[in-house]
Design a protein around this nucleic acid. Structure first.
Lengths: 228, 228
DNA sequence: GACATTGAATTGTTCAACACTTGACATTGT
DNA sequence: ACAATGTCAAGTGTTGAACAATTCAATGTC
């Protein structure tokens, strides 16, 4: 039997998953403070379990703990964005350059992510579009065949995603990114890795600039009690 | 027991620190199982606090949780070593190549780590020697001026350190590494970054080979109840 | 207005209890 | 013998209540 498939997860991990999804979907916005007792009550679990869950998420960087002051959804500063994109360039570019050896297994998944992205955009499902967009980039990292790196990259992606879901889509059309992703995929399949890396680098610069401009546009505060 | 040190940040974090140090010093060997109740009793804290601490360390990779089976000190497989050194090359080499701009602040610290290493070796304090060795490499990462990356690298270093402290020093003389570290430092101060990177790469290959050979030498088991 | 004081609210920690899982051992049936 | 099954103790997972420690805002004093 497949033991790995069986529902075998601790409650604390499940609570962490629920909260993680609410953060990444934008339901819990950056800066939002979480109180243990109401949260435990609303989820039907004990306070200790909530504490374990928030401990997990704070180590993932999605929540920020201040001792005796509680936890709040993390807020990216422009410096954070800069740091994260520095790392993305540093990891994704070597990844595509290493794509020669281990391309075969990943390419179908890249294609699926690409098509999922295009369809989400056509349906104006921005949340899912962001998800597919970032999945596409995550798959690039897989070329490096390093599980620790993938896990680290996932954490980075979770952080940018937290910021991206807040982008106002009325002034930012994700559709225009379709040709770029498609071109990256084409260059990859064609083995033109140098060109692909160059395009990717440009794409990341663009993405960073867009996210940064959004963040400075919305002047958000330090520690609001509640948002939304 | 060790309550004397415990009173600054949260107790759970302090327990995590105590355990972390015991793991990294080799007092708790890979595979060693930790039981909540005895551990809580010996540290003078509650079971819940121990659970929070083990949660922290398991997310850092130092402990491994198996649901309903407890936690045990993580064991590196040869594949883990390979992965970690892949990442070390991938991070440290770009770091020295980026040393041109931000060299000044770090160089004194590098020199201090170098001298600390040499003195520890002369005193045959292997544990401290390993510590200074790894600190030297950690400082290289600082050239990239990226806090997230430093934190990730620290986690990697903690993992290799867990393996390194078990190396049998009677068959492995750390003193022979002194010239290498010194040369790396000299090339760095001279601005000969390409040469420095080449030497570093070679040094990492050597380090990986040494650690791997040690691990296969000691044929360790999957999940022993207790070691030592 | 600046500054101590009080006190409610919230987090940090402990404790005891119970449910659930595991692994080892004993029992059964063949 | 021996494999399948049942039993049981030990350990983890989770809960709920309690208390200690800290923060923060409101109050009172000078």
């Amino acid at each position: 039997m497949e033991r790995s498939q069986i529902h075998r997860v601790s409650v604390a991990d499940q609570v962490a998953s629920v909260l993680r999804q609410k953060i990444l979907s934008g339901e819990l916005r950056p800066g939002h403070a979480l109180q243990e007792v109401p949260l435990a009550a609303s989820l039907g679990v004990s306070r200790n379990t909530v504490r374990e869950a928030t401990r997990i998420l704070s180590l993932e960087g999605l929540l920020k703990r201040s001792i005796h002051r509680g936890v709040a959804v993390s807020q990216l500063s422009p410096k954070d964005v800069q740091e994260i994109y520095h790392l993305r360039r540093m990891l994704e570019i070597p990844a595509v350059l290493a794509a020669r050896g281990s391309r075969d297994g990943v390419l179908p998944e890249l294609k699926a992510a690409l098509e999922g992205y295009e369809q989400s955009v056509s349906e104006k499902d921005w949340l899912q579009a962001v998800s597919y967009d970032l999945q596409f980039h995550s798959l690039l990292i897989r070329f490096l065949q390093n599980e620790r790196l993938e896990s680290f990259y996932q954490k980075l992606i979770a952080e940018v995603r937290m910021g991206m879901v807040l982008v106002d889509r009325s002034h930012d059309d994700p559709g225009r990114l379709i040709p770029v992703h498609r071109k990256i995929y084409q260059l990859l399949t064609a083995g033109k890795l140098k060109q692909c890396a160059a395009l990717l680098s440009q794409h990341l610069d663009d993405s960073e600039a867009r996210l940064t401009s959004v963040m400075v546009g919305q002047g958000w505060k330090k520690f609001p009690k509640s948002v939304g």
